[in-house]
């Protein structure tokens, strides 16, 4: 089972950082400030999270503190889903 951080990192690297080294993105780096993701990209990230982690994201949660770095997204997913195991299972299943 992959930690949530790795799953999110893989999604970001595969979809928005073509050809760049995954290590260049630290867990705390802001997606927006670094220009990794733009407005349309955040919507795709939201769709990915909803599907992968079987979670419902409300409009008022579309905030940088939830979604602007790998660490923030992972913490947000944990808060919403309650456990890492469930997230891992959802991903595997």
């Amino acid at each position: 089972m992959q930690p949530i951080e790795s799953q999110i990192r893989n999604f970001i690297v595969e979809n928005y950082m073509y050809g760049q080294s995954p290590e260049s993105l630290r867990d705390s780096d802001s997606f927006l400030s670094l220009g990794v993701i733009d407005s349309a990209g955040i919507l795709e990230l939201v769709a990915y999270l909803e599907e992968t982690f079987k979670m419902q994201i409300n409009d008022d949660e579309l905030l940088p503190e939830n979604l602007d770095s790998i660490a923030q997204v992972a913490a947000y997913v944990r808060r919403k889903t309650g456990s890492e195991t469930m997230a891992g299972l959802a991903h595997a299943g």
């Binding site: 927006l32 955040i42 905030l63």
Partner: peptide, 11 residues
């Protein structure tokens, strides 16, 4: 604002 990435911020 820098963009529309976080719609809740805009609201």
């Amino acid at each position: 604002e820098k963009g529309m990435a976080f719609p809740a911020v805009i609201v």
